[in-house]
Simulated scan of single mutants.
Amino acid sequence: MNIIIVSRKHGRSRMVSSWALMFALMVMVTVSVAVSWFVFSSIPKEGVVVIDGAVAEEWQHRIAEQSSELEKTRQYTEEQINALRIKLAELQGRLTRLDALGERLVDVASLDQGEFDFSAPVAVGGPEGQTVGYEAPDFVSILDDLAVTIDNREQQLSVLNSLLGDREIQSETFVAGRPILRGWMSSRYGYRNDPFSGNKAWHDGVDFAGKEGADIVAVASGVVTWAGTRYGYGELVEISHGNGFVTRYAHCSEILVSVGDVVKKSDVVALMGSTGRSTGPHVHFEVKLYGKSVDPSKYINRVARF
């Protein structure tokens, strides 16, 4: 069999025998097989090598380092969580003590239980805000709630402390009681027969008789505004208690305070005597309110209600 080949360039044709064509195909197949064998023989039997040994060793070293860092991080996180748990227990213990102290103070001060209720949860509220996707761990939420509760308790105790302080000040400056520890009332407030002239005369205070040198005490806390001799009174101590109240202690044998001294309720300010216009050892006790004398009897028998 013959094959006719036509040339495009010259338009000529020529005949090629089938044996020549078969020979050409055999040459092409042989070359292809040879090239394939060469490529296959150049590949190692264990497979294609993507990375060399040094790179693999470096990667293993990095993985080992990262594993070590991860383990350290895990241990550190556990330590921090344990520390937070200990702190949480401590805060809860402090809160329990604060609540117990607050309830005790409320009970002692006879305050309204509803105003200072340390057993009730913290009252909070407000409009709903925009939420976020992240949710904090449970222990963080507990710490946040506990911090809010402690702040609330501290505010309550602060207000309670101020209230009790005000009550204590009012109680200390509350004019009430007798200016002596032992003795008896020998003359009352108002008109009486003057012990020297026998005529009817006004008496601005009350007299308490007792022993020479007996203690004279302040009936309320205040500041000493007079400590010395005064006509008719002999040795006189005058104390200002605020809110317009002033008390006087006259005919003392000895004065134990000075002008400007701050004295507390029941402090000994002088000793009983008979100086000035007096017939014997006693203390003349006066109470003045905004400069005007008032009957001391109602303050002597007064009961503090704080």
Rank of each mutant, 00 (worst) to 15 (best):
F139S: 13
L95T: 01
V132D: 14
S171D: 08
V148N: 04
L105Y: 03
T96R: 09
A109P: 04
I81T: 14
Y134I: 12
D99R: 04
V148C: 02
G133Y: 09
P127T: 04
E154K: 07
R104M: 10
A120N: 05
F118V: 02
E103D: 11
S110E: 11
V108W: 08
S119E: 04
R167E: 15
V132F: 15
E135M: 13
G125T: 09
V148H: 02
E71I: 05
D138N: 07
E103P: 00
L70G: 15
R97L: 13
N152E: 02
A109R: 02
R74S: 09
L98N: 03
L91S: 06
S110Q: 12
T73R: 08
Q75N: 10
G129W: 01
T131G: 13
R97P: 00
R85D: 11
S119M: 05
Q130M: 13
R97F: 06
F116L: 04
I142E: 05
E79L: 11
E71T: 10
Q80D: 14
D112L: 09
G114A: 08
Q113M: 13
P127V: 06
L98H: 02
N82S: 12
R167Y: 10
L70D: 13
L111K: 01
F116A: 02
G93Y: 04
L157H: 01
F118T: 00
L98D: 02
Q92R: 08
R97W: 12
L70M: 12
L111I: 07
G125R: 06
F118R: 00
I150A: 00
S110T: 10
T73D: 08
N82P: 03
N152I: 00
S68L: 09
R153A: 09
D138A: 14
K72D: 15
F116I: 02
Y134S: 07
L146D: 00
T77M: 13
L157P: 00
K87F: 15
V124Y: 07
